[in-house]
Amino acid sequence: MYTQGLDQQGKTENRRDSLETPERLEAFQARIDAEEKIEAKDWMPEAYRRTLIRQISQHAHSEIIGMQPEGNWLTRAPSLKRKAILLAKVQDEAGHGLYLYGAAETLGISRDRMVADLLSGKAKYSSIFNYPTLNWADIGAIGWLVDGAAIMNQIPLCRCSYGPYARAMVRICKEESFHQRQGFEIMHVMANGSEDQKAMAQDALNRWWWPSLMMFGPSDKDSKHSAQSMAWKIKRFSNDELRQKFVDVTVPQADFLGLTVPDPDLRFDETSGHYCYGEIDWQEFHDVIAGNGPCNRQRMETRRRAQDDGAWVREAARAYAAKHAAKAA
């Protein structure tokens, strides 16, 4: 991921190379169609680069903001074992953010630029992280449902046409499986616990079910980025296809837990072999995306404060490095 080199030498050359002639575009699409991977320094259309930067950086921001809802329970986990597990999971989310920032940087955007775009509100992150974690079972529900939905989304991304993104996703998917299973285990323990614990598990499912379905994004008929992303093999399945897969695998798991999915319209359709589910509240989805979810402001404030509070550490590390470099010279 040779970003900096790319930044520096690209300046003059790039202008000549970036001419998007029909021949170039056609050759590029032919490589995609032949399932060839595109690598960082390869020629690519500007729109392909921009789409990837938007998607990968949003994905990275989601991992970073995603540490907050769970971080909320680190000091209140019910046992040392659960605390150690949760800490490892939150560290993984930080790691996933870093893999993804690294992959986005290969496209010629700097880390600082991405961080600045997140903090200014210009860049988005997944709507799911704007919901609060009110009881311990929420940590179970997040692992089971939110990470479960993320895995559905992410497994096809391992075959994405852009090499650095695909490789980062392979690494991430390996680690997500632990996240989902630890979440299901929490739900299983609580669903088989006291009446109060079972009620907490049901309450968590009630609050996380619909936001989890929204994680797959707008319905296919309203999804503005889908068609081109499919043609470029950045995306392999449509939002609705992935959402359906998620519902199909998750409903039997809820049955196993003895919990009720909060959807009165949910039913198994014998002819299609799929579960039919009720209408998603798209108004809520758009409100949360627009910044008006239950925790949007809190999440951004926490992130900005972390950035500001860490400034002296970054500066001290730079000063230390400069001092030692001077000594060595």
Binding site: E105, R167, A168, R314, A317
Partner: peptide, 11 residues
Amino acid sequence: AGSVHAPDDQM
């Protein structure tokens, strides 16, 4: 494996 940012080699 990927990349990281750091102020010096050890970090």
